[in-house]
Design a protein around this nucleic acid. Sequence first.
DNA 1: ATAATATACTACTCTATTGTAGCATTTATT
DNA 2: AATAAATGCTACAATAGAGTAGTATATTAT
Lengths: 137, 137
Amino acid sequence: MKLTNTSEYALRILTYMAKDPAQLYSAKSLVEKLNISDKYLRRLMTTLSKQGFIYSIQGREGGYSFRKEPSEIRLADVVDAVEGMDTYAGCVLGFEECSCENPCVMHATWIKVREEFLSVFTNTTLADIDFEQAKRY
Amino acid sequence: MKLTNTSEYALRILTYMAKDPAQLYSAKSLVEKLNISDKYLRRLMTTLSKQGFIYSIQGREGGYSFRKEPSEIRLADVVDAVEGMDTYAGCVLGFEECSCENPCVMHATWIKVREEFLSVFTNTTLADIDFEQAKRY
DNA sequence: ATAATATACTACTCTATTGTAGCATTTATT
DNA sequence: AATAAATGCTACAATAGAGTAGTATATTAT
Ligand code: SF4
Ligand code: SF4
């Protein structure tokens, strides 16, 4: 039950920004706060920008800010944008073609976990995060 | 929400064997049935053998059979043996040190998924599989 | 205009997982 | 004993994800 580092980064960045969504965040400040490799973060921000989650403002005094409302950004959207949700929406056992009519041996077991994951990640938006209790990003 | 290929293989192999647990299975027959790379499967079988799940019988007419009862092999044990459960038992965001007293921003969201995964994988054994409905391995 | 400070892009390196090749070892059959 | 058919082992190759380096481009303050 693991996301790629890239998804972890994307979620950490966007949830961090969502705590104070009006602000403009420089790559530098995000790198310092979140301890993510500078160049990798920048590349990821460009992806998130092209995917429509954030604006990127170039030049001096530039940075990143939300393009969509945090309440319109579901966790699943973020994961989907940076690594794809296919593997998570699909089969534990990695089978390509699958349906509940043609189940594999793990299906009944797996489906419970998968549904929980999908329902949490599609029903939670960046605005639903409990920022009060969070002590780290 | 993904296991490594190795874990997928291990689960497919052991669930397949658990359907008829008394039988002796050759690597060759498993490779044919399950469509897993020959050498990789053999190496994995050695691991599963050393971890105590199965016997390996060398020589002509050799093969693999269960050492433990399928009812004593939990899915989590299998995953733990071949890739480790640490990343799954741990944090979505990949934080090393974590506690519910020092939660990260995703904690409340994440914990629901993690608990479902852990509870299913620790409470399901190879004997709990519904082999009747399974159409693929 | 120029310098300073920010993001964008391209190509490369590093690493862990996954997969392959080849030979060694074991054991039943003959 | 020789052969055949099975597993065991070690080292290497291929791949994909993660991270780095260096340069180009954009914008603002002066
Ligand atoms: S039936 Fe379920 S577990 Fe099996 S291949 Fe399809 S999604 Fe995966
Ligand atoms: S509090 Fe929960 S989500 Fe946060 S780091 Fe710990 S386990 Fe992960």
